[in-house]
Design a binder for these strands. Sequence first.
DNA 1: ACCTGAACACCGTTCAAGT
DNA 2: ACCTGAACACCGTTCAAGT
Lengths: 196, 196
Amino acid sequence: VHAALELVDRAGPTALTMRALARHLGVDPMAVYRHVRDKDDLLGAMCDAAVAELTPLDAAQPWEPQLRRLALELHAMLVRRPALLAVLSGAPATPVSLAAAHQAIGLLVAAGVSEDAAATTFAVVFSYVLGAAQVAAADPPPAADHPALLDGARALLGDADPPHLAAAAGLMQEPEDVERGLEFLLAGVRATLAGR
Amino acid sequence: VHAALELVDRAGPTALTMRALARHLGVDPMAVYRHVRDKDDLLGAMCDAAVAELTPLDAAQPWEPQLRRLALELHAMLVRRPALLAVLSGAPATPVSLAAAHQAIGLLVAAGVSEDAAATTFAVVFSYVLGAAQVAAADPPPAADHPALLDGARALLGDADPPHLAAAAGLMQEPEDVERGLEFLLAGVRATLAGR
DNA sequence: ACCTGAACACCGTTCAAGT
DNA sequence: ACCTGAACACCGTTCAAGT
């Protein structure tokens, strides 16, 4: 598992193949199957190891800064290891992530929210983090295609000089956008929870 | 492109291979390469076709219901065709999606928001929709693993009967959760934009 | 212009065999 | 118990050749 994490860290998500992992370990490709059932099993174990490295939640602290920190740490981790994105997107599919979800819900319940609202809140924040990480991890479109892209959009809009095209093309390139988005989300959560 | 969309609709994202597409068209595997540069090119064209099917934005209508409708339609489309998720996650990488982003930003600017804030707002909503779609499209963990998963979480929590474990395990299984999450997000956007 | 077919360098995984 | 190596059924893509 450790070697697999090293591999994705160094060479990206596409580099994680059972054969490459075995090569990395100096071992026959099939030897890996003695230790994991299949590739999904390996990815699950990698997820557990990676999530366990995040700062754990502390039930004694207020929910909002804790949830914010967890979200940002999770986001940073997923950007670093996009290979884990797909696995973590399943319903809490791993013991460690399930335990983390439990603690986050407990944190909100302790703040006086119903269990149902707490679960929804956590699900929303979690979904957002996944989406933002996916966007942040995607490689930008090849610069060579840029002019063709802009011309295509211009043609569709029927406007030779659309006023916000530059803004649209520059969307989601800035790393700080994640935090701003998270604040929108937390403001909405605060407002909705207060209004009950 | 149409045949490829049919294929993912019928048989899921993993079924979209160049070879399967050619088989579906009754043609040699390599004939497809006469019409698209490579697989990414094909996915881009599929994205354009799929996004073009969404109800277009109307600059004369208020921004919030429009953005809500676009978000929900996009979400539904991505759940139906998860193969397009990865492509759409890149910065607006396709003429149609770039044009749509432009129109959404224009909508918010017309409502009195700065172009910068409009772009951030759209990026946030878009990221959320991608994340929620990814979660909704992921297949749930195999039911057979469920007890082992719960036991693992119990062991980690050091508690034989964690109070919110059922809630944590049931996270993100309900389709309505997308809408609730979107409302949190829009409430936050409203609050943040009003407070300037 | 468009289609074909063999080929290359890969995958994940199974299965029989070794030590 | 753990590792090996050949094999199976796939991929995306290139390239030379056909019509």
